[in-house]
């Protein structure tokens, strides 16, 4: 393994971690407020679809990104209404939204274009070389020669961290996730806060999906998220619900995926399907390694009852 391969591998890890990171940041917000984010897989798929179709029609990536966020929020609104208003089980509601998103995107992909899947070759979000910094010896090609949304995703870790740790609203959100009754007794509205947190999560997850369809691949295919939302959920647990640690979790899974992609070209006596399993296996192994040390928000998954 030479220098260029390692640089390429690390750079790819960051690129692959980008959609996971956006989804995971949204998931952290939702779960900090006490709502399990199993629906992020569907919100991500919805965002990938909304972004891709909008760009296909308007050829404008900015509008596409906006549309992806709206798609994510719409799906998240279903989760919010069901879990907050009707107090449904978070896990199963999330799963239902995943199925709905899979069906809707697949149906509309054909239905909106006269019954046949349209050929989608979309303009993609390009790589931006940061002047000066990209010429640094090792860090340059790895960190400062990435697509635009990658910079945004990693930058967003900071505001999300500051929001959760340093603002009043963030404190209230955490209180709602830990003890909604206590938050209620000091004047917060746990139901509304949870609903808003879920919808913000939808916007993040939708954007994560758009990264997949508009930055990574430049097209949309049925079920293209292929479990990335669930990998993001694993990263949240690995990162114990704090943005910076979650970022490392995403990078770990990104590195596993990048290695899996690269290894296929090395002619090792391993089948590509076994290699494709590695991100999932690594996520499972890390989850097992963490074990019971992960302490989730105390009131996660529990409905808030005014009494």
């Amino acid at each position: 393994m030479n220098y260029a391969v390692i640089i390429e591998l690390l750079s790819a890890s960051i690129r692959i971690a980008t959609p996971l990171l956006l989804v995971a940041l949204g998931g952290v917000i939702s779960e900090t407020g006490g709502t399990f984010a199993v629906g992020v897989e569907g919100m991500m798929l919805g965002g990938a679809f909304g972004g891709a179709v909008t760009v296909l029609v308007t050829q404008n990536i900015l509008v596409g990104l906006l549309a992806s966020m709206i798609s994510g929020v719409l799906l998240a609104a279903i989760v919010a209404v069901a879990t907050v208003r009707f107090r449904t089980d978070h896990m199963v509601t999330g799963l239902a939204v995943n199925i709905l998103a899979l069906g809707m995107t697949s149906f509309l992909l054909r239905g909106l274009f006269g019954g046949k899947t349209p050929v989608m070759v979309l303009p993609t979000i390009g790589t931006v070389r940061i002047p000066w910094l990209c010429n640094l010896p090792v860090a340059g090609p790895i960190l400062f020669n990435e697509p635009l949304m990658t910079y945004l995703a990693f930058f967003l870790v900071i505001p999300v961290h500051l929001f959760l740790r340093r603002t009043r609203a963030g404190l209230t959100l955490r209180a709602v996730g830990e003890n909604p009754s206590a938050a209620f007794s000091v004047g917060a509205n746990p139901e509304r806060i949870r609903a808003v947190a879920v919808m913000v999560c939808g916007a993040f997850a939708g954007l994560g999906g758009a990264v997949l369809s508009l930055q990574e691949l430049g097209t949309f295919t049925d079920g293209m998220t292929n479990g990335r939302g669930f990998l993001a959920l694993a990263a949240i647990i690995v990162g114990r619900w704090t943005p910076f640690r979650v970022m490392w979790g995403c990078l770990l899974i990104g590195a596993a995926s990048a290695l899996a992609l690269n290894i296929q070209g090395w002619g090792l006596p391993m089948s590509s399907y076994v290699i494709q399993m590695t991100p999932y296996l690594i996520a499972l192994a890390v989850l097992c390694g963490i074990g019971r040390k992960a302490r989730m928000p105390a009131a996660i998954g529990k409905a808030f009852l005014r009494s």
């Binding site: 069901a82 199963v92 239902a96 939204v97 199925i99 709905l100 998103a101 899979l102 069906g103 149906f107």
Partner: peptide
């Protein structure tokens, strides 16, 4: 009409 309508109905019915 695409048969993926099944998943739409399925997801909605679950919700």
């Amino acid at each position: 009409v695409p048969s993926s309508l099944v998943f739409v109905i399925q997801g909605l019915a679950m919700i």
